[in-house]
Write a protein that binds this DNA or RNA. Structure first.
Lengths: 211, 211
DNA sequence: GTCTATATTGAGATAGAC
DNA sequence: GTCTATCTCAATATAGAC
């Protein structure tokens, strides 16, 4: 089992934290295979044995980074169950919170993204899919709820979920590729509204809708 | 200047073509940095000096792959100007053709994707943006045409373009991450229709629309 | 154009002192 | 926990014969 070394609040980051930060930065900019442990330890201001002491090897520090980010996203997904309001409101809040977390964790997200959709880069296996599936099913659940409540049109929940995921991914991808023209939270919200004026049931039937 | 060695139709692939094929396959599955020239030449059934003879170095074979794929996509984008019909029809055909080309070139597309949105993996610079921008501007041009012709609603063309790009990207990303549940051309078309029932102008105003 | 053989550098990882 | 010094192997790339 890996040792758990929690950092005291306010303390200057110890070697372990500095190594994680340096690794996140370098993996983010160069990728897993192209980053060397020499670069990581140099950026962290320590020597190689320190990395091997805390993380066993290069794969270990990678997996620890993925795990930390995974835990945060997982917590967010789990918290949806507690939300109140219409399906549209829940969906909006969930997507906004997801997007904010993406921005906070953008370094590891970029790495995850490129490994999930792209080549593995020699990185050890990490089950991104388990999270990915859960995220999608959460969205689909909200869509189905929206259809049941007649907030959304009665079309294929799968296709409707893909449309929503498309909007989220676009917002993230702009952030990854062109942060200078970032949509931001407001832009993502506008795009979602655009989608909902098609997906939503309002405005279509001049009379009727909510009972 | 690189020498140009076109392959005669029907001839068995020569060393150069086999090297390109092997490199595409390996870069696609492992990424640029994690792929070694030893693996490439072994998969191509030649020895190292052959690769260096044709491509100068590892960067050279990568750039040649990117260039070949770039030329194909660029040709597709240029051909849009010649299309006839409504903006909606043009958009649908253009997206369908793009998606088909993505599928044909999926190996290099996966690599481009992961490098464009992700870390550079130690790969040499290639200006993906020049194509990316052109592609987006083509879509935006069609959206603006659609608004002018009152086929689409009079909302922000930028946001509407993002919604469309989201749908295209989702179809590609499913192909990259989960080909077994692929949307396919039909699925992408369904998703676009879903979007257009929001973006399009039909069905909103009970009377009016096209003059 | 293609080979064998080799130069050279830098990678991941560790031994063992403190 | 952290260091210096070092091991070992594999990476890119080339020289030079055929």
């Amino acid at each position: 089992m890996d040792q758990i070394v929690l950092q005291k609040r306010g303390s200057p980051p110890g070697s372990r934290q500095r190594l994680l930060g340096a690794a996140a930065e370098l993996f983010n900019s160069k990728g897993y295979a192209a980053t060397t442990v020499r670069e990581i330890v140099k950026a962290a201001g320590v020597t190689k044995p320190v990395l091997y002491y805390y993380f066993h090897n290069k794969e270990g520090i990678f997996l620890e980074l993925m795990r930390e980010t995974y835990v945060k996203f997982n917590g967010l997904v789990d918290s949806v169950r507690l939300e109140k309001g219409s399906a549209r409101e829940k969906l909006g809040r969930f997507i906004d919170q997801s997007f904010c977390l993406f921005l906070e964790e953008i370094k590891t997200v970029r790495l995850m993204y490129s490994i999930y959709y792209g080549p593995h880069q020699g990185a050890p296996f990490f089950d991104f899919d388990i999270y990915h599936r859960k995220y999608q099913e959460t969205l689909r659940g909200l869509v189905i709820e929206g259809i049941r409540r007649k907030e959304f049109r009665d079309e294929s929940p799968e296709d409707m979920t893909w449309v929503i995921i498309g909007a989220i991914n676009v917002a993230i991808e702009i952030e990854l590729g062109h942060p200078e023209v970032s949509l931001g939270r407001e832009g993502l919200d506008r795009v979602l509204n655009l989608i909902f004026q098609g997906i939503g049931n309002e405005g279509k039937k001049p009379a009727g809708g909510k009972k």
